[in-house]
Design a protein around this nucleic acid. Structure first.
Length: 833
RNA sequence: GCCGGGAUGGCGGAAUUGGUAGACGCGCUGGACUCAAAAUCCAGUGUCUGUAAGGAUGUGAGGGUUCGAGUCCCUCUCCCGGCACCA
């Protein structure tokens, strides 16, 4: 059987960091383990080579992003090799090379023709001083990172993937992914955000024309509580109203200030202003005022929302702030309202106001007394009868905008012709090659200033035309590299279908939890796009997913005279402890003066708490680095870096080595049968647990099992016995995936075979686990009171009798009788008194 | 703000998924070896109390279910990840 083991490929930043070491060690452990289990393993590696950091480096050092990227790749490849990873380098993929991205361009043109890709305008962060588009990351406290200018929103045309067309399938597909962590699936479900609601219109008349203002709501049952409608600043109605209202125009301008990041918008103070326009409530016929609200997003739904202050917390706050009416439309049902503060008051928001399970309509005319489902049905039916709305399924997921006004990315293969419009570049003109010798200057893409690049001929009419100078979001490259690995050399198509069919899907995907939504959702989407092109088999790309935690380390700093903190690397600090080992202070080794102990945080340059993996590998070797990384925490949790812990891992490997030398020396006497049986029991019961842990990817306890085995064998009087030969053979194979170098060498030196890679995963001998006597725990009222050694097949009556006659139980019974005795076979006896 | 996750000795973590809390490792304390130190080896190490045997207490806080709760339920606090242009 095949086993495709894939770790997320790195961005070539220049240096391996601990997160990489962790990611690739986990992948390598799984790959080696599966080789021992008899699988045909593929473990490839590549480079996510386009991206912003290369442009930043270019700005800082005046080097072309290409040169910087390629030299980083060479450096990091060497580092990965020093970790001893069993990678098939013949499959190496580099996304910034034309032989890779030409197929991305090819697929783009196919999808463009199919209508899966389309163009529309969207908002971006605009730096008015540098005259450039900024990534969210480059906006700091609302200002451009280099210019310091206040960032504005600007609408520009962009290409979009119609991912919403696949929303239903992306959602349903999650149910088939049994090998994915539940939390990741939950996050994706919530991100896709399928909701059942009602889309309806508020009619109004403007300049003698009948118009409709559309909104979407999941709470149609509260429609009789609507007291205003809020529209986004970019909404056409807002623009219209601002024409002869300078105050409103100024407010809309204010709303356009600031970036486009949702976290900022959602935490911003909620502000609004009336437009002076009224619309008609579709059911009551009442006039409803329209407001502009800075919290309404044009990109969501209709860019307008009905506001029901009585039953939506955000609307409530807004209404209180601007003293808008609050009209109750839901009341607790008598049975539900009891004890939950049924009284409605406009003074104070209460959580039940928004609880749809729990109320019935009031002040709602003919809908009074209906519960949520009944009310939504009745209201949707009435709206439909008036031609003003209907039930609608809506997704939170938005289409994926992929245009980037940046240089170091895959060129979008479109030619703009005045006559023919947007024309995709024909296959025989692909790839559109990105020139690699440019240096960006921080003011827009250099491609847009390069006539040799953008001057083109229209493929349809042969007239003069302009080539698109935007590049694609780098998430596009990382959405299909897993498929390219199956046939990285294939020059006549995106993937070789036969080889893709052989290797896909990825059996195990490993990467950081921070990719839980975007990357993993885009890759799933891309797989379906490629499937629909007949390129790849199956509906999902990744069968099993392991999301690893971050690598964190302690921080140390000194307060400087200017009040700023000077961060000091942990490697330069000595920590002092009291007689119990509690830290009491730290000093800088260089000057012996104290430093302040900060928190334990994600390794980063800014906190100077990074540990260079290369230094660890050079000092202790790859096996120690790998063992510590696997032992210190389970893979999906945070891993705290600890130099003493690394020392401990090295100590264990040295002990293992000396033990091997001792065994190799031969001679001596065999041990006594009872001791032999006890060690075999220990080794095989530990192995049983370790095999179970390995299968569930809990590598830290597998490493601890190896330590237990060595401890057990070291306690023996003599190492010259068959049980040691067997035990060491098991121990070395248990460790082989984690510490391949030492395991391989000892395996050979001790004469077990040529290569431990060819050895099978060790088997538990159940016969070694059989015991005649077992130890049971005696509890009284659930509290531990003693132990009992009994024959393993002792019956219930005997156990109860033994427990009752136990000294500790007798003492507590004090002559009384037990109420109840609970016997858990093989574990404990609990006497209830 | 919204979505997801986490919290167990001085530290990293373990606990067969409701059944002996603290495996394994680090650190610390004492001892052996050494002129001495390092390395190595041996013993101890949750907290309080007690000479000891023992007793009490203990898994972020507060409540609940159960013979029995780190594990299940409710309320809360703090920390971390993501939020669509960082990758």
């Amino acid at each position: 059987p095949k086993y495709y083991c894939l770790s997320m490929f790195p961005y070539p930043s220049g240096k391996l960091h601990m997160g990489h070491v962790r990611n690739y060690t986990i992948g390598d452990v799984l790959a080696r383990y599966h080789r021992m289990k008899g699988y045909n393993v593929m473990q490839p590696m590549g480079w996510d080579a386009f991206g912003l950091p290369a442009e930043n480096a270019a700005l800082a050092n005046n080097v072309p992003p290409a040169a910087w990227t390629y030299s980083n790749i060479d450096a990091m490849r060497k580092q990965l090799q020093s970790l001893g990873l069993g990678i098939d380098w013949a499959r190496e993929v580099t996304t910034c090379k034309p032989d890779y991205y030409r197929w991305e361009q090819w697929l783009f043109t196919r999808l463009f023709k199919k209508g899966v890709i389309y163009k529309k305008t969207a908002s971006v962060n605009w730096d008015p001083v540098d005259q450039t588009v900024l990534a969210n990351e480059q906006v700091i406290d609302g200002r451009g990172w280099r210019s310091g200018a206040l960032v504005e929103k600007r609408d520009i045309p962009m290409y979009f993937f119609r991912i919403t067309q696949y929303a239903e399938e992306l959602l349903a597909g999650l149910d088939t992914l049994d090998g994915w962590p539940e939390q990741v699936k939950t996050m994706q479900r919530n991100w896709i955000g399928k909701s059942f609601g009602v889309r309806f219109a508020f009619p109004y008349t403007l300049d003698g024309k009948n118009e409709k203002l559309w909104v979407y709501t999941t709470r149609a049952d509260t429609i009789m509580g609507v007291t205003f409608v809020a529209v986004a600043a970019e909404h056409p109605l807002a623009t219209l109203a601002a024409k002869n209202n300078s105050e409103l125009a100024a407010f809309i301008e204010e709303c356009k200030r600031g970036g486009v990041a949702e976290a900022d918008i959602a935490t911003m103070e909620k502000k609004g202003m009336p437009t002076g326009i009224n619309v008609i409530h579709p059911l009551t016929g009442e006039q409803v005022p329209v407001w502009v609200g800075n919290y309404v997003l044009m990109g969501y739904g209709e860019g307008a929302v009905m506001a029901v202050p009585a039953h939506d917390e955000r609307d409530f706050g807004f209404a209180k702030k601007y003293t808008l009416p609050i009209k109750q439309a839901i009341s607790p049902r008598p049975q539900a309202g009891e004890g939950q503060g049924g009284g409605f008051t406009t003074d104070q928001w209460q959580d039940w106001y928004a609880n749809k399970e729990y109320g019935v309509c009031v002040n709602s005319g003919k809908y009074d007394g209906l519960n949520y489902d009944q009310a939504v049905d009745a209201i949707a039916a009435d709206l439909q009868a008036k031609g003003l709305g209907d039930k609608k399924v809506q997704f939170r997921l938005r289409d994926w905008g992929i245009s980037r006004q940046r240089y170091w990315g895959c060129p979008i293969p479109i030619i703009h012709c005045a006559k023919c419009g947007d024309v995709p570049v024909p296959d025989d003109q692909l790839p559109v090659v990105l020139p690699e010798n440019l240096v960006p200057d921080g003011a827009g893409s250099p491609l847009a200033k390069m006539p040799e690049f953008y001057q083109a001929t229209c493929p349809q009419c042969s007239g003069a035309a302009r080539r698109e100078t935007d590049t694609m979001d780098t998430f596009v490259e990382s959405s299909w590299y897993y498929a390219r690995y199956a046939s990285p050399d294939y020059s006549t198509g995106m993937v070789d279908k036969a080889r893709a069919k052989n290797w896909l899907p990825v059996d195990q995907y490993i990467g950081g939890i921070e990719h839980a939504i975007l990357h993993l959702l885009y890759a799933r989407f891309f797989h379906k796009l490629m499937r629909d092109e007949g390129l790849v088999p199956g509906d999902e790309p990744f069968k099993n997913l392991l999301t690893q935690g971050m690598v964190i380390a302690p921080t140390f700093y000194r307060e400087q005279s200017n009040g700023k903190k000077l961060w000091i690397n942990p490697a330069d600090v000595d920590v002092k402890t009291d007689e119990r080992g509690r830290p009491v202070g730290a000093t800088l080794r260089a000057d012996g003066q104290p430093v302040i102990i900060g928190g334990t945080e994600k390794m980063s340059k800014s906190k100077s708490n990074g540990v260079d993996p290369q230094a660890i590998i050079d000092q202790y070797g790859a096996d120690t680095a790998r063992l510590f990384t696997m032992f210190a925490a389970p893979p999906d949790q945070q891993l705290e870096w600890n130099d003493a812990g690394v020392e401990g891992a090295a100590r264990f490997l040295r002990r293992l080595w000396s033990f091997g030398v001792k065994v190799g020396n031969g001679g001596g006497t065999a041990i006594e049968a009872g001791a032999r049986q006890a060690v075999r029991f220990e080794i095989h019961s530990v192995l049983k647990q370790a095999s179970y842990d390995m299968a569930k990817h809990q590598f830290n306890t597998v490493a601890s099992a190896a330590m237990k085995m060595l401890n057990a064998m070291e306690r023996l009087d003599s190492v010259h016995d068959e049980v040691v030969k067997e035990g060491l053979s098991i121990l070395l194979r248990l460790l082989a995936p984690i510490t391949p170098h030492i395991s391989h060498q000892m395996w050979r030196d001790l004469g077990y075979g040529d290569s431990i890679l060819a050895a099978p995963w060790p088997q538990v001998d159940e016969a070694a686990l059989v015991q005649d006597e077992i130890e049971l725990v005696i509890q009284v009222n659930g509290k531990l009171r003693g132990n009992l050694r009994v024959a393993k097949d002792a019956d219930q009556a005997l156990l109860e009798q033994l427990a009752l006659s136990h000294d500790a139980v007798q003492k507590l019974l004090a002559g009384g009788t037990a109420k109840k005795i609970i016997v858990v076979p093989g574990r404990l006896i609990n006497v209830v008194i």
